[in-house]
Nucleic acid binder design. Structure first.
Length: 104
DNA sequence: TAGTTGACGACGG
DNA sequence: TCCGTCGCCAACT
């Protein structure tokens, strides 16, 4: 468990219900240097049994690029739809209005 | 110890 | 506008 792991987890937990965030936004806000590190850290969160709403993190196009890393590929979509986010073709509909930006 | 991998994004052609 | 390439950097093998 490293420091930036915890930063990613803490920020991800702040994402409100019904909103989504992107890897790039998180990487930029936390000054991680690379968006890939965010995805990697979230991947670790599962293997370490962390309760992180990783399904609220998508790539910059609003695509559910991380769904294959969930226990089942459609789990990410189901969880987002349960929060009122519409998913079509593995993409977040009306993506720009759903994006949440971290507050300092 | 060194090479490879990866839930991305920016940039140039 | 779309596609390919490269940089990012820590963990894994």
């Amino acid at each position: 468990m490293t420091n930036y792991h915890q930063k990613v987890f803490q920020l991800t937990r702040k994402i409100p219900r019904g909103k989504v965030c992107t890897y790039g936004i998180i990487a930029n806000f936390l000054e991680l240097g690379s968006a890939r590190m965010v995805g990697w850290a979230l991947n670790k969160s599962f293997s370490q049994g962390m309760s992180v709403p990783a399904h609220r993190v998508v790539n910059r196009k609003g695509e559910l690029s991380g769904r294959n890393h969930f226990p089942s590929p459609d789990m990410m979509q189901k969880m987002l739809e349960a929060e009122g986010i519409e998913i079509k073709d593995n993409k977040v509909m009306d993506f720009e209005s759903k994006v949440w930006y971290p507050e300092i």
